[in-house]
């Protein structure tokens, strides 16, 4: 019985750590299919273990709302489950993140501008505000990079927050920091 439980715990870790699709994370229904009806119990055990390592399981709905393992199965079924870092990073951690300080600052500007424009703005507006701090060619290139990475998304004529910003960034916190 215990052996079965350990096996499921390992399987849960594999499913969450290793990408099985193009995008990271796995849907609730997929976890249920792979781990069984009581998959949330297994995930709670896994969370206890990874918490010690400074990691956590994050659950995000399609609309970008954060959910918890205690939410009903019907709600969790279509949510995406990720493993993310629990503690804030430091500027020195940037070196290992693959992003430069300019790129991170530019992304902050884009996110803050989109939030202040009630969730959407034009590419031109973002390019214009980025160009105040960065060369124009870099602003254009950065916008494409943010979209490609999933932090921003292009919806018809507008740029909106991408799935990755909704999953990884504490928006209230970022606004507080900018105004602090």
């Amino acid at each position: 019985m215990e052996e079965e439980s350990t096996k499921k715990l390992r399987r849960a870790a594999q499913l969450l750590f290793f990408k099985s699709h193009r995008n990271p994370g796995i849907k609730g229904w997929e976890l249920r299919k792979a781990l069984g009806q009581d998959y949330t119990k297994i995930l709670k055990k896994l969370e206890e273990k990874i918490n010690e390592l400074g990691l956590t399981i994050k659950i995000v709905s399609d609309s970008g709302e954060l959910r918890t393992l205690s939410d009903p199965h019907e709600v969790l079924s279509n949510c995406r489950f990720f493993i993310s870092i629990n503690d804030p990073l430091t500027i020195t951690d940037l070196r290992t993140s693959g992003w430069s300080i300019d790129e991170i600052a530019g992304l902050t500007v884009c996110i803050a501008t989109i939030i202040s424009k009630e969730g959407k703005t034009t590419r031109q507006e973002l390019e214009q505000i980025l160009s105040q701090k960065l060369p124009k060619w870099k602003a254009t290139r950065l916008l494409s990079k943010y979209i490609k990475a999933g932090y921003l998304d292009e919806k018809e004529d507008y740029i909106v927050l991408g799935w990755r910003t909704k999953s990884e960034v504490d928006l209230e916190n970022i606004i507080r920091y900018i105004f602090s």
Binding site: F17, F18, K19, P24, G25, L55, T56, K58, F82, I83, S84, I85, N86, P88, L89, T90, I91, D93, L94, S97, I101, D102, I104, A105, L107, T108, V109, I111, A112, T113, I129, Q132, K133, R164, S167, E168, V169, D170, L171, N173, I174, Y177, I178, F179
Partner: peptide, 23 residues
């Protein structure tokens, strides 16, 4: 606020609010 902030402050705002996905 954006224009009044330097690149370090803006990137720190993001870093402090960022919990990247591990995969």
């Amino acid at each position: 606020a954006i224009l009044g902030s330097n690149i370090e402050k803006l990137s720190k705002a993001f870093i402090q609010s960022w919990r990247p996905v591990v995969g």
